[in-house]
């Protein structure tokens, strides 16, 4: 209830001069207020544009574009990848073969795909890849992947060895390619020898552009198969065999390594397990932008730890966070 209001202006004081002064003051006040009204409608500091903020260090590529096209006799082979570029790390490969005589897509072929890198002494190695490409009937292309383990440089070059069959005839082509540096750390990869003596590769597939949110974390995990037989005719695929690791588990502990963040972590993260498409899926929560380390512990199908160390969960302000021996650094 509006009781007890004592109006300060209800008392009248004698007023004689001061009028002019006050008038001036009033005028000044109104001028001042008008000026202020204009001044204040704009903020002193601009708000952060969240989209721009996330885009600062991360470029997201959505479009698949042609990386290279190869002509072999009457066949035209197109290789398509994200942004028309092969990057170090995981690359989805889409391949089209067209018979230019008939102008028809070749879609019943057995296509094999083998990337090899040859160093200055002539030794060739490969990288995790899908050797026999699958035909995707929905989108009409052959689908596979390659996890390039190194960028192209002056002394080491990548070449693709592709074979395909058409009309019961096998054709093979070789094409030099360039593998570029992956600047998006969210698609980083790592390779290591685990306690079982095998060589493994972990490559991040998604998210390309993480958000301060719950992110589905997708990784490919591969293993190098030691050849059991003598090398045949080059390139002998048995010498360069990689497989997707099945039914392993990748335990996840994401943390911010920045010393001032004191080993900050997030919650509700989920370990990566293999799904039907062969890739490993988990959940990572990023609570803010910046540098994060994905600390991993690698378990085989029997639940045995074959790589990775547990990291401290202590909050340690001022000290750079310790990383697991198996980890991938990301930045967004």
């Amino acid at each position: 209830m509006s009781n007890n209001i004592l109006d300060i202006n209800s008392r009248n004081y004698n007023f004689k001069s001061f009028k002019l002064n006050t008038l001036l003051v009033m005028k000044k006040i109104s001028f001042f207020m008008t000026a202020m009204l204009f001044a204040v409608t704009a903020c002193t500091l601009d708000k952060t544009d969240y989209e721009d903020e996330i885009n600062t260090v991360v470029t997201e590529y959505i479009d698949y574009e042609e990386v290279v096209s190869i002509t072999k006799d009457q066949y035209l082979i197109n290789i398509v990848a994200l942004n028309g570029t092969f990057y170090k790390g995981y690359n989805e490969i889409r391949l089209n073969i067209t018979n230019t005589d008939t102008n028809e897509n070749v879609n019943t072929s057995d296509v094999t795909f083998l990337p090899l890198i040859t160093n200055y002494s002539g030794n060739s190695t490969s990288c995790p890849h899908q050797y026999n490409l699958d035909y995707n009937t929905v989108n009409d292309y052959y689908l596979g992947y390659a996890v390039f383990t190194e960028e192209s440089n002056d002394s080491e070059n990548w070449e693709l060895y592709i074979t395909f069959t058409d009309n019961e005839e096998t054709h093979s082509v070789t094409q030099a390619i360039t593998v570029e540096e992956q600047t998006n750390m969210n698609l980083n990869m790592t390779s290591f020898t685990a306690d079982d003596g095998e060589q493994y590769f972990i490559a991040l597939v998604a998210p390309q552009k993480p958000a301060i949110a719950e992110n589905e974390l997708v990784a490919g995990i591969y293993k190098y198969n030691q050849p059991t037989n003598e090398a045949g005719t080059f390139p002998d695929p048995t010498q360069f065999s990689y497989t997707e690791v099945t039914d392993y588990t990748l335990l996840l502990d994401p943390r911010m390594p920045e010393p001032s963040m004191g080993n900050h972590s997030s919650l509700n993260n989920e370990d990566l397990t293999q799904q039907d498409d062969g890739l490993y899926y988990g959940v990572v929560n990023y609570t803010m932008t910046g540098n994060w380390t994905l600390n991993f512990i690698f378990q085989n199908q029997y639940g045995e730890i074959i790589k990775g160390t547990e990291v401290s969960t202590e909050f340690t302000p001022g000290i750079e966070g310790a990383r697991s021996e198996l980890h991938i650094d990301i930045l967004f």
Binding site: E53, E258, G290, L331
Partner: peptide
């Protein structure tokens, strides 16, 4: 908003 500055100021700021 909060924007934290890493000790190495050339590094990426941390925003949320």
């Amino acid at each position: 908003e909060m924007r934290m500055y890493p000790q190495d100021r050339s590094e990426r700021t941390m925003f949320a």
